[in-house]
Design a protein around this nucleic acid. Structure first.
Length: 428
RNA sequence: GGAGAGAUGGCUGAGUGGUCGAAAGCGCUCCCCUGCUAAGGGAGUAAGGGUGCUUGUACGCCCUUCGAGGGUUCGAAUCCCUCUCUCUCCGCCA
């Protein structure tokens, strides 16, 4: 949520910055609504003040043993008007709230202009991308291992799910363990286990609601509960409504969780394989920090995600997202893209964002620095998407026989096995 | 699932219709005293919103908030209804 004073004091500037990310701000509608709301608020406050004074006078008069009948009659008069004003004000507050909740975060000045991923700016590369020549894609490897079954997953649930079995299921679990160990032991994160369902309040605070309900799986009505699209939702809501001691910051949380996304509107995109699923595993990093440290924290958090890919020896590049390609809550985002030989291109495997005070405002999350209280800053990033890491391993480290040569860091997590070999016998 | 108890400020905890945004204690901030330390004395200390100006680097006034929502009343932390959450006991269970 943006600071309403930004829109009030300099609507042209706010509107210009929002336009960079393709959002049109109706300045006139905002101004009318805001002014109307404040006028009604003043009217109601004055009315309530009169009412409070009258009530006090009645109490005092009664205590003195005076006749209070005329006072009572007079006091009853203004109730109807107050009820009217209250209803009107509720409507205006709700309308303004809806408007504010629908506005995306303002992009950082350094964020390049642009509409989509073609306008993102490459910051750096690591590793040597292999040629895709003669390589199987991960779906073919999965078939070879008889360990990746999209058909049966579709029969169990629907399309865009997968069943992993044998060494591939094991590999996914190993990746989760490696990432959690790396972030807790070397990067100072606290491991957290979180609910995989979230209510509307949590999802509004983190920014998915009210605008992106269509991207979520809703489980229940009354109260509505949703499957989490990322562990970022429970992690940032861990500190909802709190005022944290600035000296105790940053807080660093890491959680592994499944992520559930309806992928509405992605029909026909990445229909093959594990790249885009309704359910996938992810290790998520969240930091809560102070305004002056958040920019540096994004660099660190990005490096923490990069460290995973380096351990896995996977070639990648780091992209600074353009204004039009950023997520709703982000002020600045670094995407990590891993090399996929079968597609002969880099694909997103992590997205690291500084939300600055945007989420903190929705969360009611403050920090105290000396005697000053300000909104905290929140950051999040994948560290990294586990399903896509699995895909990248299978595609980058296979040999001609389809054996997968594991990076050294992963070997301890695979019970000492260095090479996965496809099964030789017949069978399901 | 059944029965009961509870939810008050940063924390503990009083408050059963008006003078209660709320006793007391703890914590915190500032000041005083004491040669250090410990102790002592004094003052202050919830949040959100609106508004005014002598625009204060802890200003004034007003409104709202005692789990949430609704009701009764001139007036609700206090009475009534609904919901949520927490705790205790029983049952069931991984």
């Amino acid at each position: 949520m943006l600071d309403i004073r930004l829109l009030r004091d300099d609507p042209e500037a706010a509107s210009r910055v929002l336009a960079r990310r393709g959002h049109h701000l109706d300045r006139e509608a905002f101004r009318t609504l805001d002014e109307e709301r404040r006028a009604r608020r003043q009217e109601l406050d004055a009315l309530r003040h009169r009412r409070n004074e009258q009530a006090k006078a009645i109490g005092a008069a009664r205590a003195r043993g005076e006749d209070i009948r005329t006072l009572l009659a007079h006091a009853q008069d203004e109730d109807a008007r107050a009820a009217e004003l209250e209803a009107e004000l509720r409507r205006l507050d709700a309308a303004l709230e809806t408007l504010l909740l629908g506005l995306p975060n303002l992009p950082d000045p350094e964020v390049p202009d642009g509409r989509d991923e073609n306008d993102n700016r490459e910051l750096r590369r690591w590793g040597e991308p292999g040629t895709g020549e003669g390589r199987r894609d991960h779906v073919a490897i999965g078939e070879l291992y008889r360990g990746m079954d999209f058909g049966r997953a579709a029969a169990i649930a629907r399309s865009r799910f997968v069943v992993l079995s044998g060494p591939l299921a094991r590999l996914q679990r190993a990746l989760v363990a490696l990432m959690l160990d790396l972030h807790t032991r070397e990067h100072g994160y606290t491991e957290v286990y979180v609910p995989h369902l979230a209510n509307a309040e949590s999802l509004t605070a983190s920014g998915q609601l009210p605008k992106f309900e269509a991207d979520l799986f809703r489980l229940t009505e009354d109260p509505p509960l949703f499957l989490i699209p990322t562990a970022e939702v429970p992690l940032v809501n861990l500190v909802r409504g709190e005022t944290l001691d600035g000296n105790a910051l940053p807080l660093r949380y890491v959680a592994h969780s499944p992520c559930y996304r309806s992928e509405a509107g992605s029909y026909g995109r990445d229909v093959r394989g594990m790249i885009r699923q309704h359910q996938f595993e992810k290790v998520e990093l969240v930091q809560i920090t102070t305004p002056e440290r958040s920019a540096q924290a994004l660099e660190e958090l990005t490096a923490h995600a990069e460290a995973v890919l380096k351990k896995l020896e996977l070639p990648y590049r780091v992209m600074l997202l353009c204004a039009g390609d950023m997520g709703f809550a982000a002020a600045r985002t670094h995407d990590l893209e891993v090399w996929l030989p079968s597609q002969k291109r880099y694909r997103e495997i992590s997205s690291c964002s500084n939300c600055r005070d945007f989420q903190a405002r929705r969360l009611g999350l403050r920090c105290r620095i000396g005697t000053q209280k300000t909104w905290a800053h929140t950051l999040n990033g994948s560290g990294v998407a586990v399903g896509r890491a699995l895909v990248a391993l299978l595609e980058n480290f296979q040999d001609d026989e389809g054996a997968v040569h594991l990076p050294a860091a992963l070997v301890p997590y695979m019970n000492g096995e260095r090479i996965l070999r496809p099964p030789t016998g017949e069978g399901a």
